[in-house]
């Protein structure tokens, strides 16, 4: 019993030391991450930048390539997600319109599924 208590105490001390080291001395630093892991506000701003650039150059292909960095989700969905965040968090009407323009262009460009006849 005494040994068990001692073991448990040592374990607690070890865990405490580990947490102190991991949280205070050498906390985790994220490096070499991909845009897909961005926090939702940064992610929304990323999509907004893509939309702003698209408004300037009207190059939908470049916009799609840029949005692809955010992950495998369809580009139109990425923009819709950003629009939802933008509406929920009160972005300016101009920003919403800019995002909307990109969403419209992406939806218009999306290939429609066709059933091939044999």
């Amino acid at each position: 019993m005494k040994t068990l208590v001692r073991l448990f105490a040592v374990l607690l001390v070890g865990i405490t030391l580990g947490l102190l080291y991991g949280w205070l001395v050498q906390p985790v630093r994220y490096v070499d991450t991909a845009p897909g892991s961005l926090r939702s506000d940064y992610r929304t701003d990323y999509v907004l930048m893509v939309a702003q650039a698209y408004a300037g150059d009207q190059n939908l292909q470049t916009a799609q390539v840029r949005l692809a960095s955010l992950g495998p989700q369809p580009a139109a969905d990425q923009v819709t997600e950003a629009l939802t965040y933008a509406v929920d968090h009160g972005l300016s009407r101009f920003d919403l319109d800019t995002l909307n323009q990109l969403a419209i262009a992406l939806r218009a460009a999306a290939p429609t599924a066709e059933i091939q006849s044999p």
Binding site: R29, Y30, V31, D32, T33, S37, L38, S69
Partner: peptide, 14 residues
């Protein structure tokens, strides 16, 4: 899995 990261942590090419 890395989530909620900031642009400052992006890999060089990104």
């Amino acid at each position: 899995s890395y989530t909620d990261t900031s642009p400052a942590s992006l890999r060089d090419d990104f």
